[in-house]
Design a protein around this nucleic acid. Sequence first.
DNA 1: CTGCAAGTTCAAGCCGACTTGAGGTCAAGC
DNA 2: GCTTGACCTCAAGTCGGCTTGAACTTGCAG
Lengths: 143, 143
Amino acid sequence: MFDIDIAELARRTGVRASALRYYEEKGLIVSTGRHGLKRLFAPSTVERLSLIALGRASGFSLDEIAAMLSEGPAIDKGQLRAKAAELDRRIDDLARLRDGLLHAVACTAPSLMECPRFRGIARLAGRQAAAQPARRRFRAEPA
Amino acid sequence: MFDIDIAELARRTGVRASALRYYEEKGLIVSTGRHGLKRLFAPSTVERLSLIALGRASGFSLDEIAAMLSEGPAIDKGQLRAKAAELDRRIDDLARLRDGLLHAVACTAPSLMECPRFRGIARLAGRQAAAQPARRRFRAEPA
DNA sequence: CTGCAAGTTCAAGCCGACTTGAGGTCAAGC
DNA sequence: GCTTGACCTCAAGTCGGCTTGAACTTGCAG
């Protein structure tokens, strides 16, 4: 259970070394010290990074995640509850879209927009859906 | 049921005119013609934009949405099914994170990372969570 | 000792999704 | 017929989240 270097942390988490340095700079993770120049991380950082990945995949910004993970004496419960509620809404949206896609697979209408069921989904979607940039997929650090 | 101009479309959907022009350029929406210089849109574009908003909120890129919405003679069912499965995974992730947040509210451990339940969530989250940029919230076009 | 792979810093670049600003054009109202 | 203001185009800028490249430092193997 000794501290691990950045390459090992990258290997265990699938997060690139450059991203790990960036995370440290942003305060999302901490290194326990250095061996020469090289950063050392506690093994528990692996779990912390899982949580960060989960937050990212759920659409939170790094700053928001930092806030949720902060050790601050006053971690705001109300804010967490609000986040949870927001997640519930997003879950509903995703479920609706999933149902829409599955219906689209089975649907015989010539195009999605001509399918009344799909248009119903569209109508439900409404104005309130928040803008959000596109995902980018993980790319491996060149060997 | 006459065609509407870009300002009206923006008003009905909450999407800024500049974004609508960008969407047209990317082929996500089409204008039916011009009145002078001004674009005209069919009223059904409102629904289409709802769908686009839903897709965005669900983490799809504009290109992916364009593909899903395409009228193409061969809209790939397998791909849609894959998207639906992906959504299911994302829904699971979000539910897990939501449960984690709710537990955090109730939890007595001094910090999230010291709570065994939360660490369990972190462990489940695993490596497979895809990287994804942060949401940006909608900002209204200056009056 | 020396070499070198694997780390380091820092600045600059990239991507998607828009927004902003400058300068131009048009249809409608006076 | 002229102004006005809503819309137009096009290029450049912004933002978050990294990645990349150049130049440098180390600990360890030989």
